[in-house]
Simulated scan of single mutants.
Amino acid sequence: MRQVLLIVDVQSTFSPPEWLVDGLRSFSAGIPTIASVELHDEQATPFQRQLGWHPAAEDENLVEADKVFVKHGYGPTRETLDYIKQLNVERVLVCGIQTDTCVLAAGFALFDAGLCPTLVTDLTVGSSLDRSGQLGIDLWKHHFGQVTTRAEVLAELDAARG
């Protein structure tokens, strides 16, 4: 199956747990990987004005990726979506930080772009509202249906190799 891994906002600003960073590093080694990094630009997204908080103006992705896209806000950029569409993949594996906000926003954008977003449930962390990520997982199942785990994807890759 042609697929790409999209890692959402695994960067210092959001203090990802070490198990997530380590898990993503080993998982992404065998799959084409892209990542997003959320940077603050108040002119693009009014985090400070509306929420009294904002991500860092400079930060970097903590997991090696083939391509990294900067975004200013919750969802992926048009450039990110166009890049993924050019890859002609059957599904986009999505994981990362804030299952119930930024990861979910990526799911909506991918779905609306005609792609097949699939959440990797054990490689995601929720927001401060629900650190377990279960709220985001439940919303993902409701809206997109497609969820998987790291073990299921690795088993599929092993079976495809032969």
Rank of each mutant, 00 (worst) to 15 (best):
R2E: 12
Q3M: 14
V4T: 13
L5K: 07
L5A: 05
L5M: 09
L5Y: 05
I7G: 08
D9K: 05
S12T: 12
T13P: 01
F14R: 00
F14A: 00
S15C: 13
E18I: 06
W19L: 01
W19N: 03
L20V: 02
D22G: 02
D22W: 01
G23V: 04
L24R: 05
S26A: 13
F27R: 04
F27S: 03
A29N: 06
I31A: 09
I31T: 14
I31V: 14
T33L: 08
T33Q: 08
I34P: 04
A35F: 07
A35V: 09
A35C: 11
S36T: 15
E38Y: 04
H40D: 12
D41H: 08
D41K: 12
D41V: 08
E42M: 01
A44N: 04
T45A: 10
T45V: 09
T45W: 11
T45Y: 14
Q48D: 07
R49W: 02
Q50W: 12
W53L: 03
W53H: 10
P55K: 05
P55Y: 02
A56W: 08
N61C: 11
E64H: 10
E64V: 06
D66V: 02
D66W: 01
D66L: 01
D66G: 13
K67M: 06
K71W: 14
K71Y: 11
K71E: 12
G73C: 02
Y74F: 08
G75M: 00
G75R: 00
P76S: 03
R78K: 11
E79T: 08
Y83H: 15
Y83A: 09
Y83P: 04
I84W: 01
K85F: 03
Q86N: 10
Q86M: 02
L87D: 04
L87A: 07
N88V: 11
N88Y: 06
V89D: 04
E90K: 07
R91Q: 15
V92W: 05
L93C: 03
D100G: 04
C102Y: 10
V103N: 11
L104E: 10
A106M: 13
A106T: 11
A106H: 11
G107P: 07
A109N: 09
A109W: 01
A109T: 11
F111K: 09
A113V: 00
A113M: 00
G114I: 02
G114P: 03
C116A: 09
P117D: 12
P117N: 13
T118I: 03
V120H: 01
T121D: 00
T121N: 00
V125T: 08
G126K: 04
G126V: 07
G126A: 08
Q134A: 09
L135H: 06
L135V: 12
G136L: 07
I137H: 05
W140M: 06
W140S: 05
K141V: 14
H142E: 15
H143V: 13
H143D: 10
F144K: 11
Q146A: 14
T148P: 07
T149E: 06
R150G: 01
V153I: 15
V153C: 05
L154S: 05
L154A: 03
D158K: 15
D158T: 15
A159S: 14
A160V: 08
A160N: 07
G162K: 12
G162C: 10
